[in-house]
Nucleic acid binder design. Structure first.
Length: 734
DNA sequence: TTGTAGAATCTTTTT
DNA sequence: GATTCTACAA
């Protein structure tokens, strides 16, 4: 029980205090960056509990795991144990929680599987292959597009039967097959007793809309609702929270339209803008004073964000003084950027708390160079959601085995494991099994099929025998995990019997991969899960991890600096922020530019710089490796918008955006001309000595490919090997 | 059906 | 540069 006489409004300003004290009814908090938003939410939860609201009656939602953890930690440090009673989750985790608890409303058993994006894509590819064979093979990009379209329909709560009414299919690429694809995909998923990510919101809303009874049960259980980053809610999230809160109307939402960065996932800023219309009795409180950053940092961020036209006009102000002027460091290439940034961060980590330092980047791919550089410096670091641990082949294989044991209807898992390691069940057999499974109307239990009479499926004797063999060891394991088991023993047993251990040991030896090592990591995570949840089953584990991207850590929390994408940094703050890769096409990203969402990129930049309390170090590289070849990079337009007076420049030659624009046009003109002039020298061969205008002399190592795309690898006198597209490279034979 | 070498393709952001 | 796909030998 927490001290009910304690005043949780102490240390808050007037607006924050008002927000905390406004306990009942709808409340909209418009909170600028750094205005103490999280602090206000956390104090509000504490205040509710101290007024006698049971924590179990409170639901609080965030967007990312990182933000949820931050809020959980801070609530705990304020009120202690009662904090654990609050249902504090990400939106998806809340959906999963409800689906797990009310799975009967979908006729699903509790052991359903959750497919990640690559699982979904695989299923879509398969459906396209079998149902639309006349059309030539779909590319990866097309399959991703189909998957995204389906996901975004679900985010907008558009069911397959709604599509013809709500979507103009004539205008939609692939519109002629989309409806059928969507239906089939949903059917396959249901047969597999699986959900995809979008389902965690979509299906939850569907069961709540379908069952009055369920909804009123939930209304009895939950009375208070808080939503962080409300500007980033999509239709499904919005509806979910409306449904849950409509009885008590005790809904508090917090947000900032300038920090809307999930438009690409269906988020609709309109949700926050129309809160007053949804709840006419709503109280609105604005938090405008920034307690985080110095004035110099705010000036820079205000300068950039005001270039967006569609926004509620506001200017943040600070009382923390001017502080240091932000710094822009210009490096010759991405590798140098990583090396020098790592060095600076390491030096700084000796004078301030390492946990107060963050290196931010636009894309996950950029993390690799920083990781390598920090390792060389011996500086411990933490990465959130880097290029996925859970995407590695060995991890996916093992998790597929576990998923299949938990849910023998999961065809994605089944087809992944059936011939891994090789067991003589090739593509032909797989095709036959799939056809046979599809010909059965019932949900098809693949585990039992392994042992069944397979004569009707037209399989070879060899394949049949192989499948029976799998059954003989897999079935006992599957029976065992119905009850709680020792995770470590279970894991080792599975690893050995499946043959994965032998297979990966061999591969590690031959290609010096480290698959066994990462498998070891997975085992650790299972053991950790068991010690955190002593009554947890294998099924619980597999559902739980499906929502988490991995965190890599090379030291303890205290001594590690942090690396993450700008998206992940929202809601957090750091003493020093290194914001890297500020180049056109990287930030703003080229694909965002193409789809006309530069405004969202600008908000993203705004989010990034407003994470900084005292020190902001911007950087860009003049050259960056893209697709294996160097590309010269133009400075980000955001650097111009920030105003040259507002930061110091180190290295490189600063020019204005217009000058660079002209230069770029001249250059592209020159390229056009030069590509029309037949090249005199294209006949390089391995061993030739050559001269490159930027890198000096070198020796040709290899040539690969042919025609216009022919690439050339050259070993230069500085000891580095570089690869170029021959056609675009000014090489002189010596 | 398996293994592999060379070619083609690929990357935005999160759950 | 890294991963995935394709063609072909065994």
């Amino acid at each position: 029980m927490i001290d009910s006489t304690r005043d949780f409004t102490k240390g808050l300003n007037e607006s924050q205090k008002a927000a905390v004290e406004q306990t009942d009814g709808p409340l909209l908090i418009l909170a600028g960056a750094g205005s103490g938003k999280t602090k206000t939410i956390v104090h509000r939860i504490a205040n509710l509990i101290s007024l006698g609201v049971p924590p179990q009656k409170i639901i609080a939602v965030t967007f990312t795991n990182k933000a949820a953890k931050e809020m959980r930690d801070r609530t705990f440090s304020l009120v202690g144990d009662p904090a654990h009673g609050v249902l504090l989750r990400t939106f998806h985790a809340l959906g999963l929680y409800l689906l797990r608890r009310y799975h009967k409303h979908l006729d699903y058993p509790p052991e359903f599987t959750i497919w990640d994006e690559s699982d979904s894509r695989g299923v879509i590819e398969k459906i396209l292959e079998t149902n639309f064979p006349s059309i030539n093979k779909f590319s990866k990009t097309e399959i991703r597009y189909f998957n995204n379209t389906i996901a975004s329909w679900k985010d907008n709560l558009i069911r397959p039967e709604d599509v013809p009414d709500m979507i103009d299919l004539d205008l939609l690429e692939g519109g002629d097959i989309m409806v059928q694809l969507y239906e089939q995909y949903e059917q396959t998923k249901r047969k597999s007793i699986a959900f995809d990510f979008a389902d965690l919101l979509y299906q939850t809303v569907l069961i709540l809309e379908r069952s009055e009874r369920l909804l009123s049960d939930l209304h009895r259980i939950y009375h208070y609702f808080l939503v962080d980053e409300y500007q980033d809610t999509n239709k499904a999230q919005y509806t979910l929270i409306q449904l849950l809160s409509k009885k008590t109307r005790n809904l508090c939402v917090v947000g900032d339209d300038d920090q809307a960065i999930y438009g690409w996932r269906g988020a609709d800023v309109q949700n926050i803008l129309s809160f007053k219309a949804d709840f006419p009795e709503a109280v609105i409180i604005k938090l405008e004073e920034n307690y985080r950053s110095t004035q110099n940092i705010l000036t820079l961020s205000n300068n950039v964000i005001r270039n967006n036209t569609q926004r509620m006009e506001k200017v943040l102000f600070s009382n923390l003084g001017d502080g240091e002027l932000p710094l822009l460091r210009i490096f010759p290439d991405d590798e140098t950027e990583a090396r020098k940034t790592a060095r600076a961060a390491t030096a700084l980590a000796k004078t301030i708390k390492p946990s107060e330092i963050v290196i931010l980047y636009r894309t996950n791919a950029q993390s690799r160079l920083f990781e390598e550089a920090l390792r060389r410096e011996g500086q411990p670091y933490k990465i959130h959601g880097s290029t996925g641990f859970f995407d590695r082949r060995e991890i996916k294989d093992l998790l597929a085995y576990i998923s299949f044991l938990v849910n023998p209807y999961d065809r994605v898992a089944f087809f992944r494991i059936i011939n891994t390691p090789s067991r003589g069940i090739g593509p032909k057999s797989v095709e036959n099994i799939l056809d046979y499974a599809n010909s059965q109307n019932e949900n098809f239990n693949f585990l039992e099929f392994l042992n069944a009479d397979k004569s009707a499926a037209g399989l070879s004797d060899k394949a049949s025998a192989s499948m029976a063999e799998i059954y003989s060891w897999l079935k006992p394991v599957s029976d065992k995990i119905k009850n709680p088991v020792d995770m470590s023993l279970f894991f080792e047993d599975l690893l050995r019997k499946s043959g994965l251990k032998a297979m990966y040991k061999e591969e590690d030896k031959l290609m010096k991969t480290e698959r066994i090592a990462s498998i070891e990591e997975l085992k650790n995570s299972m053991v950790q899960f068991q010690s955190d949840n002593p009554s947890g089953t294998v099924a619980d584990y597999i559902q739980d991890i499906s929502l988490f991207t991995s965190t890599t850590e090379t030291g303890d929390d205290e001594n590690s600096i942090t690396l993450m994408t700008v998206h992940n940094s929202k809601g957090l703050e750091f003493d020093t922020v290194f914001l890297t890769g500020l180049e056109e096409d990287n930030f703003p990203h080229v694909l965002a530019k193409n789809s006309g969402s530069v405004d969202e990129e600008r908000r993203l930049f705004y989010v990034a710089v407003t994470r900084a309390k005292k020190r902001l170090v911007l950087s860009r590289a003049e050259r960056r490796m893209v697709f294996g070849i160097y590309r010269s990079q133009m400075p980000s337009r955001f650097l111009d918008e920030a105003g040259e007076k507002n930061y110091r420049v180190e290295g490189g030659t600063p020019t204005t955006y217009l000058e660079r624009h002209d230069a770029a046009i001249t250059e592209s003109f020159r390229n056009t001309i030069s590509s029309k002039i037949p090249r005199i020298q294209t006949d390089f061969k391995s061993g030739d000595k050559v001269k490159h205008p930027n890198f000096g002399t070198g020796k040709v190592l290899t040539l690969e490919g042919g025609g216009d795309a022919q690439k050339i690898s050259i070993y230069f006198s500085d000891g580095k090997t570089r690869k170029f597209i021959l056609r675009y490279t000014q090489l002189e034979k010596l």
